[in-house]
C-alpha cells in the first residue's frame, strides 16, 4: 500500500503531504508517524501541507490527533504552509485546530520548534544559523 514518506532531520521528523489523501492513507500516516516518534525518540514533528488544496474534517482530525498523540509521546508538532483558501474553509467548517502550532513555512516551523524546546530546556542554544534568520533588519 502507498505510504507518505517520513524524513528524519536530527531530532525532528518531517512529513510533506503532497497527494490528495484518501482516508486510509491519512490513517496510515497517523500510525506511521507515532511509531517513528517512539522509534527515533524525535522531539519535534513538522507536517508541511503547503501542497494540500483541501483539508476536510477527516484530515483536520488526523492532524489534531497526530499533535495530541505526539504530545503524549513527548514531541511537539508544528503544521506549516496551510494555504489561505484551505484555512478559510477549515474555519467555516468549524475546525480551528486548537492546540496545534502553526508556521508559514517549514523553515519558520523549524525555528519555532527549536524555540519551544529551548524554552522548555530540552535543547541547547539555538544554532548560529537560526539566530541569523531570527534577527530583524539591522537598522
Amino acid at each position: 500500500m502507498e505510504r507518505i514518506p517520513i524524513l528524519k532531520m536530527g531530532r525532528f521528523l518531517l512529513v510533506t503531504i503532497q497527494v490528495d489523501m484518501h482516508d486510509r492513507l491519512a490513517l496510515a500516516l497517523q500510525d506511521d508517524l507515532t511509531a517513528r516518534i517512539t522509534e527515533t525518540g524525535a522531539r519535534g514533528v513538522l507536517i508541511d501541507i503547503s501542497a494540500l488544496e483541501m483539508v476536510d474534517s477527516f484530515i483536520g482530525r488526523m492532524i489534531a490527533n497526530i499533535a495530541a498523540m505526539a504530545r503524549i509521546l513527548d514531541a511537539q508538532t508544528v503544521v506549516t504552509g496551510m494555504q489561505p483558501a484551505v484555512a478559510i474553509t477549515l474555519v467555516e467548517l468549524g475546525l480551528d485546530l486548537p492546540g496545534v502550532r502553526t508556521a508559514l513555512t517549514v523553515e519558520r516551523g523549524m525555528l519555532l520548534l527549536r524555540a519551544v524546546l529551548h524554552a522548555a530546556g530540552e535543547l541547547d542554544q539555538p544554532s548560529a544559523a537560526d539566530e541569523g534568520l531570527d534577527a530583524g533588519p539591522a537598522d
Binding site: V79, T80, G81, M82, Q83, P84, A87, I88, L90, V91, E92, D96, L97, T102, A103, L104, T105, R108, G109
Partner: peptide, 12 residues
Amino acid sequence: IKTVTAARLMGA
C-alpha cells in the same frame, strides 16, 4: 474573527 483564526492556522 474568521480571518484572525484562518491567519493563525496559516502560522501568522
